[in-house]
Amino acid sequence: MKKLNLSLKNPIVSYIGFGGLLMLVPALILAGVLRNSTLTLVASVIFYSIAALGLNVLLGWSGLVSLGTAGFMGLAAYISAYLTHDLKLPFELALVAAVIIPTLIGILVGFISLRIEGLYLAIATLAVSEILRKTFEVFDFFTGGYSGKPISFPTILGFITQTPANRTLFPILMYTILVIFLVAVMILIHNLMKGQFGRALNAMRGSEAAAQAMGINLLKYRLMAFGLATALASLSGVLYVHFIKYTHPGSWTLALSLNLVAAIIIGGARNIYGTILGVFVVFAMPDLILKQIPYFGTIPNFAFIVNGILIIIVIMYYPYGLIQITKDFKKIWLKLKERFS
């Protein structure tokens, strides 16, 4: 029997450990060290990370650019909101339905990817996303139109609901669910990408013709990649709407899709921690860190401008992603060690 490897070198153990680390945030909030708003901010990093990890399968491992993520996230969010809020269906059922329906559309888009590629594919997926967004605007009995759709926290497992008694604890419960999903997705992506699926995608990225010659079925793996990316985008959308409790068409624009692409490139393509780091830089750094800097933080939009400049600098000096910085640190560390030993 293989011995269980429980050191942090084992990626799966490290992912679970990372989940535990994320659970420190609510603990610190309850202890009064962090502000309440931090929970929402870290939660947003978590659900955007789930979408970004899915997009990374396309952008990183398959080398296909998709700008449709926001549309699929939005579609899943609206379906889930409609099913739980208007039809009063259980949250778990709505989650499954809201993941399956966009995924089917995503697989259809996968068929398009066999015909067109590169920039054309990126903008074709953008068109899909725009079609969905316009539909959110006009299909108002389903989506609430321009004014958006407010919902309440879901009932979990059919009996846990928000009551005045657990007002402060319920968001933390939702947050825990987000963390569990994130860790599960990290393990899933790790295993899939280390396995046959990931190797097939790597081969296809290198050369489609060579991959085909090795007996890789392009159609099958393209559709699987699109299916996985869309399913994770949908999951992210569902978690978004049930944590934020509100959705409107303005949330699901090109800007969101572009930010997710940026997060992956900045953090590091084909790297799970890199993706999460990138999402943190793009979505949370302005509020969480830059605005806390004394004096400068009070200048309006200072954080936003600095974040933009940082993104440009990272792309120019760390073209393989910010996660490469850890290697630089290691080098410096080894040098220091040598000098003092």
Binding site: N301, G308, M316
Partner: peptide
């Protein structure tokens, strides 16, 4: 200065530009 960067990463530069320009405009 960004000539040698991979094409996909190059696009992201314009995203950084969007953030800078939007921030500057509202300031």
């Amino acid at each position: 200065r960004a000539k040698r960067i991979a094409p996909i990463s190059k696009q992201i530069i314009t995203l950084g530009l969007i953030m800078v320009v939007l921030g500057l405009a509202s300031t």
